[in-house]
């Protein structure tokens, strides 16, 4: 039950609510603005004269006869063949997530069940690897990859993303497996299972919540990556994010910046849906390593 003192509006409360309100506005407005603007022509979205043009689409009406236009989307998806990059992104993301989780569950389980000193050192090494800026690693890949002729292909990028993803995946699944009581798999082993059978029949059925949460973050890492994909993929194998960047190089001159705006909105839409469905898991994953201290 809320007491009178809890529901009363105090100055401190007013300040803190307005701070929250201000933050929510700052967080959401850029997305709403860009989404709305992506259906306008460039003269409206980048309107020097009057910013309300972007709201009502004055120039858009003048140029196309309607307040909304799909020109940007048509340009990006059809003329610039953005669909190809979307397919590439799909392949990279799906395989990265599946392989990362397979490697990560096996490794994370081993780290959680081994009491030896080397398990601790592996986790510390993983923490240092996690802190490594990705571009420092990429500068080590290029020369060998060129020499071995594996530069530019999707599988190369996938395995590199899997490796970069491992430190995080290991930490997260390790702390998740620590929460599953040891007795479960050990009693299975007493009953005659090998370690792997115990893992397969006892742990696998109960591990899905942790795996899904970790998978969401593996997805985000692969989906959001720019450094690795921009440097390791040839032009025809480019994924969405480097493609958007190379759009800018070519389109700004030709006044086709709206293609890039449309591509940006298209690339953000899946993330929006992801948050909509998995908000709880994302929040619990963000804090998984933290709350236990």
């Amino acid at each position: 039950m809320a007491t009178a003192s809890e529901t009363r509006m105090t100055p401190a409360k007013a300040v803190s609510f307005s701070l929250v309100g201000l933050w929510l506005f700052i967080a959401a407005f850029p997305f709403l603005w860009t989404f709305w603007g992506s259906f306008k022509v460039q003269a409206d979205f980048f309107s020097k004269a009057d910013w309300t043009n972007a709201l009502w689409g004055t120039q858009t009406i003048a140029e196309t006869g309607s307040a909304f236009t799909g020109q940007g989307y048509f340009g990006a998806w059809v003329i610039e063949a953005f669909w190809q990059n979307v397919i590439n992104s799909g392949i990279v993301v799906v395989f990265t997530v599946i392989i990362s989780l397979t490697f990560g569950t096996l490794g994370g389980y081993a780290l959680a069940r081994s009491g030896f000193r080397y398990a601790f050192w592996l986790l510390i090494a993983a923490l240092v690897f996690r802190a490594m800026p990705h571009i420092t690693l990429v500068s080590g890949y290029l020369l060998p990859f060129f020499e071995w002729n594996i530069w530019g292909h999707l599988p190369t990028t996938i395995i590199v993303l899997v490796a970069i993803n491992q430190p995080f995946t290991l930490w997260m699944l390790h702390s998740f497996f620590l929460n599953i009581p040891k007795d479960m798999d050990e009693s299975a082993m007493v009953d005659g299972c090998t370690r792997f059978q115990a893992f397969r029949h006892v742990i696998v059925p109960v591990m899905w919540p942790g795996v899904i949460t970790t998978g969401l973050f593996s997805f985000l890492l692969a989906y959001n990556d720019f450094t690795v994909t921009a440097m390791l993929l040839s032009a025809e194998n480019e994924t969405m994010i480097p493609a958007i960047n190379s759009f800018l190089g070519t389109t700004q001159v030709e006044g086709k910046v709206m293609y890039a705006v449309a591509a940006v909105v298209s690339a953000t839409a899946p993330l929006f849906v992801l948050i909509l469905f998995f908000q709880r898991q994302i929040v619990s994953g963000l804090t998984a390593g933290a709350v236990k201290g």
Partner: peptide, 14 residues
């Protein structure tokens, strides 16, 4: 929380 997650999870480049 939903609104707050957007700027964090959006691709940094985007």
């Amino acid at each position: 929380i939903f609104v707050s997650l957007l700027p964090f999870l959006v691709t940094p480049l985007v």
